[in-house]
Amino acid sequence: MERQLILAIGREYGSGGHDVAKLLSARFGLKLYDRELLALIAQENQVDEKDLEWYDEQRSSRLLFRRVNGFDNSPGANIALMQFDYIRRRAEEGESFVVVGRCGEEILRGRPGLISVFILADREFRLTRVMAERGTARAEADALIVRTDRRRRAYHDQHCGGRWGDARSYDLCINSARLGIEGTADLLERYIKARNREEMPEGQTW
């Protein structure tokens, strides 16, 4: 008998959070929701995914957009709410999955089977990864890290009570530079299995 498992993974840019999430989703046989969420939402609403991409994980400005009688016309806020709604519906339907970013640890808080993790890394480790992946110079990679982290923090903190990357908001925070991507995934796998032993009623597994 299988019980629901939801992994909500927050990550610093360049820490390899997405790759760790991919490894874990493969090892536990779970669906992975990251940027793919936009494609699913676009399909559901019969719209072009490209129209939504720009607003993914973007903070919405209160100066440029307004709220009237519960209607908020900020594209960023609406895309975020659509993603939250999609994730919640999947969770309510009993699906097990891995969600990267999208305030997963906050919007699914309190659900049995939720394990929340934040993956961070040393600046040097992140710079090396970003330069290799993007083929950019060091200064450019550094600027990209600063910009992306700032954007993710602003987006997260706008929608959540807890702060982005604050250890108190997650079950576990881990520095991927110490064990590498594979090693971090291995450790998290063991952690998930340990939680399984602790929390699962006899006869149930993840």
Binding site: V47, D51, V68, S74
Partner: peptide
């Protein structure tokens, strides 16, 4: 502008909610 009148906010919000975000 999208913020100039309440009707603009409501209309563009309904569009955005249905997957049609409207930028400035």
């Amino acid at each position: 502008t999208p913020i100039g009148a309440s009707a603009n906010v409501v209309g563009t919000a309904i569009a955005a909610k249905s997957g049609h975000p409207i930028s400035w």
